[in-house]
Design a protein around this nucleic acid. Structure first.
Lengths: 228, 228
DNA sequence: GAGTGGTCTAGACCACGAG
DNA sequence: TCGTGGTCTAGACCACTCA
């Protein structure tokens, strides 16, 4: 199951990875040039580059064409639960941009509204320090929008979170300032009130290496016995 | 934002991709050998291989050492909800390998048992046709193991699912026959009975492009008002 | 053993970033 | 202009699969 013949690329990647994780190569440090590294490890430059590609895909280094390869800053992990990201820290901040638009396409079925229904979109970008870590688009039927931000309104009776993992799109990658080869947690959240009206739909994109999502389900002894 | 100078690898990948998605290259078909493809596209074999690596990362082809490159079957998306994967289809099958071991490390805190507690591990690999799509490791304290498979036992009172997105490890990638550059949905599930005893812990790894996870949360009007 | 993919080399040339 | 990373070549050799 484990690799019986470790390839050069993995050996080199392992070495650099431990140097990064142990702090020998600190955050923000520029690595030696690829030709220097290739000479140091006594391999050809293509081989060395495949090793760096592994670290790049893991999000450990950042490649900047014409400048060099840099060690990325370490991540502090956030938890998405009950619709909010925790822990809230002073270093975390959120920018919100509000847009008026009309429902069309997938939004109409998500919100269960007719096409061209007036909506308000809240585009939220969460930052930790200078680094963006999350991208949230919230859609609310305009007649439900109050002056408050959407997360301060009435509590929904039901919330459905559909979660998947995928690679970041080029758009998301540029917004979140990562490579497209990064795993993100994509959550589609639909909140419904007590009479079944959809009061909010949201698309959340969280960097996989910076966030978890936590869901707790309770079963009473009566219900759910019919399953299976 | 778009690539202004399309590289050879992308041009070739685009060509093969359209051939696959339009059905010119049907599911399960073996591609010509890499040297034949390289000759056809008039590029070197390493260049052709980087093009195939793109398709491999997208999950369009499956590489089998010594045999060839095969067009993967189109994805049918599974949904993880209430602890099971749906829909159940005849083409889906699961292999289970049972191992006896003793708790240590992270497992002791997950299961809330002392170190070296006897456990049973169920290693389940889900297949659709010939292609693996999920990898599940279930850990149960041995005194709770019955003759039945673990998913047929008593229904837990509480289930906590911790979900994140990450790239597949090399081990998972080889088991699931994908590249490590693939986004997977990693779920850690802890099931507790009515008296708070952990009756099962599970690590699930689902291919991001083949699975969603669905969670529904209900709020009564009384509770949860204190929040915010 | 024949044919396949996997890894690696030692160069070449191009594109980008900064001084 | 110079040093950087990005792409590509034309081979070589090894590991795996299957007959």
């Amino acid at each position: 199951m484990t690799d019986p013949v470790p390839s050069l690329r993995h050996t080199i990647a392992d070495d650099l990875r431990t140097q990064i994780t142990t702090g020998h190569l600190g955050a923000g440090v520029r690595l030696p040039s690829e030709s220097q590294l290739a000479a140091h490890y006594k391999v050809s430059t293509p081989t060395l580059r495949t090793a760096l590609a592994l670290l790049h895909a893991e999000g450990l280094i950042e490649k900047i064409h014409g400048k060099g390869n840099y060690v990325r800053r370490p991540f502090s992990r956030l938890t998405y639960a009950s619709g909010i990201l925790t822990p809230a820290r002073p270093s975390l901040r959120v920018t919100v941009r509000t847009t008026q638009l009309r429902a069309r396409g997938a939004l109409t079925s998500l919100l269960k509204v007719p096409s061209r229904t007036p909506l308000t979109e809240f585009l939220c970008i969460g930052y930790e320090g200078e680094s963006p870590h999350s991208l949230v688009r919230i859609y609310v039927p305009r007649d439900l929008v109050t002056a408050e931000p959407p997360w301060c309104r009435q509590r929904p009776a039901q919330v459905r979170d559909k979660v998947t993992a995928r690679l970041a799109t080029t758009e998301e990658a540029s917004t979140l300032r990562v490579t497209p080869a990064r795993a993100v947690l994509a959550i589609t959240r639909v909140s419904t009130d007590t009479v079944g009206r959809v009061i909010e739909a949201a698309h959340l994109v969280l960097l996989g290496d910076r966030a978890d999502a936590l869901f707790t389900t309770y079963h009473t002894t009566e219900e759910g016995v019919a399953e299976e």
